[in-house]
Amino acid sequence: MKLNPFEKKLVRHPLRFWLQNHIEAPLLTSMMPKPMACFEQALEIGCGFGNGIHLIREHFGAGRVTAVDIDPEMVAAAKGRWQGSPHGLKDIDFAIADATRLPFGDAQFDIVFDFAVFHHIPDWQMAIEEVARVLKPDGFFVIEDLYRAAICNPLSRRLFEHPQQNRFDHREFLAVLRQAGFLILCERNVFNLAGMVLAQKTLRL
C-alpha cells in the first residue's frame, strides 16, 4: 500500500532523516555481529525518498545498493535525490517493485533492509518469503517496523492509510521469520508498538 500525502510529507521531513541517521542507524548497526561482514550487494525494500540508501552505504558499508518501491513517485524522487549527489548514481540501482514479487533471482543479495515498510504490505508473510528467496545463505535481514497496536488505532487510522487486516505484533513477526528459515540473532520490542530485528537466513531443515 502506498503512503498517503500526509505520510509522504512526514517521511521526507529533515527531522525524520536526522532520526534515521543519528538514532536508528546506530541502534541497527549495534545488533550486527562484529567485525561487520562485507556486503557487496544490498537490497532496500521500500526506498521512499532515498535516505535509507545513505544509511546502508555509510553505516553498513554496502558496495552496491538496489532500492525498490511500489510507488513510482517514490522511486523517481529517490533517484533524483541521488542523481544530484556528489557521487551520482554510481553503485545504486532503482526499480519499481512489489515486495511480494521481487524481480530478482534467488540468492542474489548479502543483506536486505526493511525500514518501517512491512506494515504497509497486506501480504507481509509473502514478502518475508521473498526476502528469504533473494538472500544468499547466511545473508542478513535488517528490520525496523511498526506493529498492530501502532497502526490499528483511531488516531493512526485518521492520519495514515495502513492495511488494517492481517497485521502483526512482535511475537507474530518473529514466528513468521523463523518459519521462512531465518535465525533471530537480535530482537528489540518497544512496548509492542515497534521493534527491531536482525535475522539471518539459514538452510531449512
Rank of each mutant, 00 (worst) to 15 (best):
G46Y: 01
A76N: 10
F60W: 02
R16M: 13
F39A: 08
H22P: 14
C186W: 10
C47Q: 02
F182S: 00
L55Y: 15
I53K: 15
D169Q: 00
N189K: 05
K79C: 12
F17M: 07
K34F: 10
A67G: 04
G84Y: 06
R81T: 12
I184W: 02
N192Q: 11
M126C: 11
I53T: 15
P72A: 01
N51Q: 14
Q165R: 03
Q179P: 00
G105K: 06
V134C: 06
H59P: 01
H120Q: 10
Q108K: 12
P122Y: 14
D93S: 04
I143D: 10
A99F: 01
P122M: 13
F94P: 02
G50Y: 13
H120P: 03
K201C: 13
I53S: 15
V197H: 08
E58T: 07
R12K: 10
K136F: 06
P14W: 03
H162Q: 04
F191L: 13
P103L: 00
F118K: 07
N21H: 15
M196S: 13
L146E: 13
R204S: 11
H54A: 15
I92L: 02
A62G: 02
V112P: 08
M1N: 09
K201S: 09
R16C: 09
L28N: 06
P137F: 07
M36G: 05
R188F: 05
P86D: 01
F49V: 09
M32G: 02
F113D: 03
F39G: 01
W18S: 15
R16W: 11
L28V: 10
N166W: 02
G80I: 08
M74K: 02
M196T: 09
L193N: 04
L19Y: 15
G80V: 08
I45N: 00
L203Y: 14
H119A: 11
K34P: 05
C38W: 11
G105N: 06
E73F: 03
P154G: 13
Q165A: 04
H120T: 07
F104N: 00
E44T: 00
A78E: 09
L185Y: 01
P103W: 01
C38N: 13
E40V: 07
L159C: 08
I121Q: 08
L198W: 12
P26M: 11
N153W: 07
L89I: 03
T202L: 14
F49Q: 09
Y147C: 09
E73P: 01
A78G: 14
P33M: 04
I53L: 15
E44R: 01
M36N: 04
K9F: 03
F94D: 02
R188C: 06
L55T: 15
C47D: 01
A76G: 07
I151D: 04
R148N: 12
F191E: 09
E44C: 00
M31Y: 12
C38I: 14
L198I: 11
F109P: 06
C47E: 01
I121M: 08
H120L: 09
